[in-house]
Structure formats: structure tokens, C-alpha cells
Write a protein that binds this DNA or RNA. Structure first.
Length: 809
DNA sequence: GTTGCCAAGTTTTTT
DNA sequence: ACTTGGCAAC
């Protein structure tokens, strides 16, 4: 600690702290206003993470114990980013050599998972509860719908789940839902909701939304628990506050406490930017920002407006775009930096062209650096953003071809692989034998003679007696309609799982010695590995061997082993007493069950596989949602097309459209020095190449800071309307495509002629849908058409501009 | 009970 | 395109 640092926590000025150096007046205010509720309205790039991390360091510098600080974010990436920044700040300030023990910096979901684990009794949960992911939820809800003899046509499982999820985000449980259910369909929904809840309870499982709902309920109803949490956490910080939903707001409120409970105004510090609210589809509620001042009296509101991240042109583009949002409190984005390259907008032919263009752009920076500085830019300083994960494909291919290292941030992909999920289901069953969903998944994978019929009998046997399915299998002989063969299979299965876990005791000589050992035994003794190996070998006879599944299983073992390596139960900041007294407790002897639970929790909640990285890192590919909170020297946003960004699913309301615009805004403001936005004239979606029209956002960014380049081959068609103009008349808000289509008519006529010239009568052509045909007649001009006689289909008249006929020999 | 084939639905974004 | 589910054949 610096010698001149005052140590009294009540000293508000602390003029000597190095932690306040290099901050603007407003940033300094946000950093050192420690007491009472604080709401920071931080524009993009205004240093909000900087302020948050300095604030935490400042608290620590002033002698506040690390365990009394709770920092909550919305996504795992944000949490990790903040942990790293805190660590760096503390080290730089000479306050710590790492993340101080007991400091919690995590996501809402993860925090709740830990709280529910700690207070499982009070929450009415088993300590070994499982967390169901979307696929598990789907399985269960389907089972419930079938059990209620309802049809999945009237009640599509996905939309049922989304109704349930929405309800939970509003803290409406099954009973409350039923009470307010009016019409026929909603009453049935309520029944499904109840059945779904019962299924989870029976399995000792919770879903993602339960983590929040149950925690909110726990804190609200159990005064002892609430008291304990409030006593421990005196300093509450919430990042990305604009993305919190109702449940999260309630949790934050309860953790903060009231003035009556605390005897003073709670120290709750929230940072948010309404312009970056992009999670309304998950129930995020912007009114949480507005309500902050109501809920917390005497709140200090601090605006952070100045942008320190991006060059003036990038900021200009961002500002011009976001001004189109009507439901917005106006706010000026400004920077005091001068100069900077214009934002590049390029129209490409197709996704392959787009990808190579972007990769070439990166390679130039990799060689020459930015703006001809000569100092090469590291790969890690470059990123590609896109609206949907599917768009990464072409860019990945191109990067691989060019030998440019890259990482795709694709949340859960690895853990959602079939083989990985199955292996994890085995592990979950080992951790929690009541987990019927996991059991059902693995009991006959690979096949061991326990088919649908036998399983149904066991199911019945179990539910008659209120037993977990696993117990029914254990008593296979007692189940009347189960064949000897199936009973054998069941017994062997139970014996196998028992041998891993010492029949659930995790004691005894046969029990797996470590998590790694357990994982290895699971994939081997279950026959999973052999199963996929055989499958791969079989395929190899044909053409391509798919060894990746076996590799994935091996990778899972490595991931488990790596987790185990790092795991230190004493690090668990949820161990209140140890955290608060500094007593390491039972450190060093993590029992297998403890590691296993922690591991399973981490794979359900922290699903981003964090691979990487070579010397100067790798180019990062991610969705716009994932990009929030990050920054890169050079960034490309691809797929700026109607239907993609804004996404077609978000076309319905003005509010949705504005969220898409904010999403685009988030992407733009990630770029520090160079920004490239691309649209592709054709894009292959689900196997078929489709015409696109450039995103309205490309018009809305204006022309002042932009260099527009149309590299789409006029031969492949010109600015057209296709689906766009027809399906969205006058396009919401800003009118038609002006800049891009001013020369439209002339160009269209010329291009039509050109298209027609290439396709004389008698030419054989291929059409993506109709196949091979011969041209009979052709016309030119703006709406050039051709009559084509297709094999087996007959005569069709096609508009050349859209038809994409390819001449063939 | 198991395997293999065809039809259908799926895809926004994250925990 | 790509996976999942249902159904018929083995």
C-alpha cells in the first residue's frame, strides 16, 4: 500500500491514491463515491470497466476486506475480463499479487448457483442438485406434455419453455401462473409448467431461470439467509446493469438491503448504458435503470460521456446510427481525439468473397500495422463480429486457408456435442443418482439391452413408489414385466455406476481416485469410447472417418483433469466463514464429489471453452452479443444485410428493430482504430444461395465518415429489392435505400442487358432449384427475363436479376 | 430390441 | 445443412 494512502474508510478525498490518477473528473467521482447507491450511466468506451476495477482496488486500498466485495456481471466473458482487470490493477497498485481471496466477481447465474448450493436446505433443494441445460429442459417438457396427453403441435415444447422462462424471469412461479391463467391454452400451459416443475423437483434439478427465481425467493423469504449475505457483502457492484431482468433486479435489491435493514443507505454501485441493452429477449428490463433511483433513495447519478476508445470517424458512425433510435434518451458521444481512418463499408459478392476480403484486410495490418506505422498489429487485436453463429463458417475457412490463427468464441458448442453431453450425463448421474433425465440419456447409450419397453416398466415402478429411476433399476428383479435380459442389463448398469461412486458414498477402494480417473473410467467402462471408435471405423470404410467424436471425449477428460488441477476448495468464495476469517479450512483434500460437483457446475454455467493462444494471439470471431464489453484495434462486422442484421426474427416491432440497431452500435463501438463493415450480395443460408439486400443500418450510418466500395460483381446482379422492398414496404423509419440505389434504374437496365447478353437462346443453364434447362427466349433491360425449358419441369419465366442462372456446357 | 432410412423441423442472440 | 424423431425392417 502506498505510504501516503489514508486508511480511514470515511475519508472521501484520498488525494494521494494512485488509483485516482489518470482519470477524468467524472471517472474519479465514480471511483471514489463509495457510500450509498451510485448509478453510473456510462457511454460505450467511456472507461466503465476502468472505473469499476479502480473502485474495487480503491476499496481494498482503504482496507475493506476483499470478501466484503461482490461484483456481478451478466456474462461469463465480462466476469472473466473484469477479474483479469482487477488483478492487473491490484498488482500495478502494489495492493495484491493476484485476485484477493474471497473477492467475488462472477455472473448472476453462477452466484445464484453457489448460494443455492450453500443454502440448499433453506432453498428446499438437495445439495447435489443438477443444472439442466436447454436440451434437458426440452426432454423433460416433452415428457410432461406427453404425460398430460397434450399434443406437441398445440404446445410446441420450445415455445412452452420460452413461456415458462419468461414467467420465471418475472418471478412468476407455476402456482402464480396457474392463478392468473385465463384462457384454455394458458390453463394447459399452467399444467405443463406445474408438471415440468414437479419433474425437476423429482430429479433434484433446476434450470437456468430457477437459479435466479429460487435465489430471489430464498433471499426474500429467509431473513436469516438475507441477513447473512447482507452482513458479508457490504460493497455491491453490478455491471451491464441495463441487461438485468426482473429477477436479477430483485436479487440485487435484496442483497443490497434497505436502509432499515442496514441502518444506512446500501452501498450498491451499478453501471449501465441503455444504448447497449441487447438482452430484452431474455427478459432484460430497461426500467431497472429508471427504477434504480426509486428503489434506492439518495442515489448519486454519474454520467460518463467521453469516449476514450475509438477514433472520431468510428464514433461518428456509431453516433449517427444510434440517433435513429426514437426510444432513447439523447446522449452525445464525443471524443477529444483527432484524425483516424474512415470507416470502410464494402459490398461483396458472396460470403466467400466477403471472408477473403476481411482476411486480406487483417493480413495487411498483420504485416504493415495500422495506418502504415510499420509496427505489425497482433492477431489478437483483430476481431470479426456477426449476428448469428452460422456466419462464422466462411471466415473460418478463409482464415484456415490463409494460416491465420483464430479462435471462435462459440459459447457452448463443445459441451453440446452429442458424445460430450452423453459423457457428462454419466458424470452427472454419478454426482446425483436421482437425475432421471441424465439417467435416461445414458442408460442405453451405448446399447445394453435396456429398451424402451423395459425402461417404461422401470419408470412406472419408480413413480408408483416415488423412487428415483436409478433405484428402480437397482431392483430390476422386482419389476414384473422386465425380461431377464433387460434385468441383467439394468443390474450391470447399476453395478457399473456404483463402482465409480462407491454406491454414491464416494468411499471405498474401487471408487475413482480423481476426477480425471472418473472421467476416464466413465468413457471407457461405459463403452462410450469403444462405441464411437467403432462408429468411426465403420464410416472409414466408406469415405471419411469421423474420429472427432473420440477426440472430443478425450478432450473432455483433459478438460476435467485441467479443472481438477486448478481446483482448490478453499478458493470457493462462497465458503463464508473461511473467506471471512482467512482460514483455509479443509484445503488440500478436495473430495471427489466436491470436485465433481464444481466441475459439473462450471461446465453448465461457464460453457465457453477458453482455448488459445499463440505468441501474438489469434483473430477472434464472435457474435455481436459476445462482443459486448470488449475492444479491438481493428474490427470487421460482416453480414450487414436485411434479415441478418437486423435479423428477420426481430423485424416485427419497432422496439425489436431498435434493439438490433443497438446491437450494431455495440459492434461498431468495439473498434478502436479501424472498422470495416461488409454486406454480401448473395448469402448461402441453409444450403441455398440467396439474394440479399444491404442492411438499412448501412444507410443509417451516413456518409460523412464512410468510404463505400461496391465490389460485388455487377454480373451477379445489382442493388435489387428481392425479398426486401416487397416484404418491408418503406422500411420502418428511415425511408428507402437512397445512397445505395440512386443510380439504380440506370444501373439495373445496364446490368439487365449485360445479364441477357451472356445468355443467348439455346444456352444450357443451371438453376439452383429447377436444375438444368435450355433457354428459349431472352429479353434485356431493367427487368431482363428469360424463358427456360427445364428438364422434367417445363417452361419457366425467370427474372434474370434474381434467378442466378449459370451457363453449363 | 436394434438398426437404418426418411421426413420434419430447425436457427438469433446467453446463462 | 444438419440434426432429431418416427417408423419399418431385421
Amino acid at each position: 500500500m502506498p505510504a501516503d494512502a489514508p486508511t480511514t474508510p470515511t475519508d472521501e478525498t484520498n488525494p494521494g491514491s494512485r488509483l485516482l490518477e489518470g482519470l477524468t473528473e467524472q471517472q474519479r467521482l465514480a471511483t471514489r463515491t463509495l457510500e450509498g447507491p451510485v448509478l453510473v450511466l456510462a457511454a460505450a468506451g467511456s472507461g466503465k470497466t476502468r472505473v469499476t476495477t479502480r473502485r474495487i482496488a480503491y476499496l481494498i486500498e482503504r482496507g475493506e476486506p476483499a470478501w466484503s466485495i461482490l461484483a456481478v456481471t451478466f456474462t461469463n466473458k465480462a466476469a472473466r475480463e473484469m477479474r483479469e482487470r482487477i488483478e492487473r490493477t491490484l498488482i500495478e497498485a502494489g495492493l495484491a499479487s493476484g485476485t484477493p481471496r474471497g473477492l467475488i466477481c462472477t455472473t448472476f447465474h453462477s452466484l445464484c448457483a453457489r448460494l443455492l448450493r450453500r443454502y440448499a436446505d433453506a432453498a428446499g433443494l438437495p445439495a447435489d442438485y443438477s443444472i439442466y441445460d436447454t436440451a434437458d429442459q426440452l426432454t423433460l417438457v416433452k415428457r410432461v406434455i406427453a404425460g398430460l396427453e397434450l399434443s406437441t403441435t398445440n404446445f410446441p415444447p420450445r415455445s412452452v419453455l420460452s413461456s415458462i422462462s419468461n414467467a420465471k424471469n418475472e418471478l412468476i412461479d407455476a402456482e402464480a401462473f396457474e392463478r392468473q391463467a385465463g384462457d384454455f391454452s394458458t390453463r394447459h400451459l399452467a399444467r405443463i409448467y406445474k408438471g415440468y416443475e414437479a419433474g425437476k423437483r423429482q430429479a433434484g434439478a433446476v434450470d437456468f431461470d430457477d437459479l435466479l427465481l429460487l435465489t430471489a425467493r430464498l433471499l426474500g423469504e429467509d431473513a436469516t439467509v438475507r441477513r447473512e449475505c447482507q452482513d458479508r457483502w457490504r460493497w455491491l457492484l453490478i455491471d451491464e446493469y441495463q441487461d438485468t431482468n426482473r429477477a436479477q433486479f430483485v436479487i440485487a435489491s435484496l442483497l443490497a438491503g434497505t436502509r432499515e435493514e442496514r441502518g444506512r443507505d446500501p452501498n450498491i454501485f451499478v453501471v449501465g448504458d441503455p444504448d447497449q441493452a441487447i438482452y430484452s429477449w431474455r427478459g432484460a428490463d430497461i426500467t431497472n435503470i429508471l427504477e434504480f433511483e426509486e428503489r434506492f433513495a439518495n442515489a448519486t447519478v454519474i454520467p460518463l460521456g467521453e469516449n476514450f476508445r475509438s477514433t472520431a470517424p468510428i464514433l461518428g458512425v456509431a453516433d449517427t446510427l444510434i440517433r435513429q433510435n426514437r426510444q432513447r434518451k439523447h446522449k452525445d458521444l464525443f471524443t477529444s481525439t483527432q484524425g483516424g481512418s474512415r470507416v470502410e463499408v464494402t459490398l461483396c459478392r458472396d460470403e466467400g468473397h466477403e471472408a477473403s476480403l476481411v482476411v486480406d484486410w487483417f493480413k495487411r495490418f498483420g504485416e504493415e500495422g495500422l495506418d502504415g506505422e510499420g509496427r505489425p498489429l497482433a492477431w489478437r487485436d483483430m476481431a470479426v463480429f456477426y449476428r448469428t453463429n452460422a456466419l462464422s463458417r466462411a471466415v473460418e475457412d478463409e482464415l484456415r486457408r490463409s494460416g491465420v490463427p483464430y479462435v471462435v468464441v462459440r459459447g457452448t458448442a463443445f459441451y453440446q456435442r452429442e458424445e460430450v453431453k452423453t459423457a457428462l450425463a454419466y458424470l452427472r448421474l454419478a454426482a446425483n443418482q436421482s437425475d432421471d433425465v441424465s439417467l435416461t440419456r445414458v442408460v442405453n447409450t451405448p446399447t445394453r439391452g435396456i429398451g424402451k419397453a423395459s425402461l417404461a416398466a422401470a419408470q412406472q415402478f419408480a413413480s408408483e413408489r416415488g423412487l428415483p429411476l436409478f433405484e428402480a433399476l437397482r431392483r430390476a428383479e422386482e419389476i414384473p414385466s422386465v425380461s431377464a435380459r433387460a434385468a441383467n442389463g439394468m443390474r450391470a448398469f447399476v453395478a457399473m455406476v456404483d463402482s465409480w461412486t462407491g454406491a454414491g458414498t464416494f468411499m471405498g477402494t474401487d471408487v475413482a481416485a480423481s476426477l480425471r480417473d472418473l472421467a476416464e473410467r466413465v468413457i471407457e467402462e461405459s463403452g462410450l469410447e469403444a462405441h464411437y471408435r467403432k462408429l468411426a471405423a465403420k464410416q472409414a470404410e466408406g469415405e471419411e472417418a469421423d474420429a472427432s467424436r473420440v477426440e472430443n471425449l478425450e478432450e473432455l477428460v483433459s478438460s476435467a483433469a485441467a479443472f481438477e488441477e486448478d481446483y482448490d476448495p478453499a478458493d470457493d468464495p462462497m465458503r463464508f466463514d473461511e473467506a471471512m476469517t482467512g482460514d483455509a479450512g479443509t484445503a488440500g483434500v478436495p473430495d471427489l464429489l466436491g470436485v465433481l460437483r464444481a466441475y459439473l457446475e462450471s461446465v453448465s454455467l461457464v460453457a465457453d471453452a477458453d482455448l488459445e493462444s499463440s505468441e501474438d494471439g489469434a483473430v477472434t470471431l464472435m457474435t455481436l452479443h459476445a462482443a459486448k464489453g470488449l475492444e479491438f484495434a481493428a474490427a470487421a462486422i460482416i453480414g450487414l444485410e436485411e434479415g441478418q442484421l437486423p435479423h428477420s426474427r426481430a423485424h416485427t416491432s419497432e422496439a425489436d428493430l431498435e434493439e438490433e440497431r443497438r446491437l450494431c452500435f455495440v459492434g461498431i463501438t468495439r473498434a478502436m482504430r479501424r472498422l470495416h463493415m461488409t454486406a454480401s450480395r448473395y448469402r448461402t443460408v441453409r444450403g441455398v444461395s440467396e439474394r440479399t439486400i444491404p442492411s438499412r443500418f448501412l444507410e443509417e450510418i451516413g456518409t460523412e465518415h464512410v468510404t463505400l466500395s461496391d465490389q460485388s460483381d455487377p454480373f451477379a446482379g445489382i442493388e435489387g429489392t428481392g425479398m426486401g422492398a416487397a416484404s418491408s414496404p418503406r422500411r420502418l423509419g428511415t425511408g428507402g435505400p437512397r445512397e445505395l440505389s440512386s443510380a439504380d434504374e440506370v444501373e439495373r437496365a445496364a446490368a439487365g442487358d449485360k445479364l441477357a447478353a451472356g445468355l443467348a437462346a439455346g444456352t444450357t443453364v443451371r438453376h439452383p432449384r429447377f436444375g438444368i434447362g435450355v433457354i428459349e427466349t431472352v429479353s434485356g433491360g431493367a427487368n431482363a427475363r428469360a424463358q427456360v425449358n427445364f428438364r422434367g419441369i417445363g417452361l419457366k419465366t425467370l427474372v434474370l436479376e434474381y434467378a442466378r442462372l449459370e451457363p453449363v456446357d
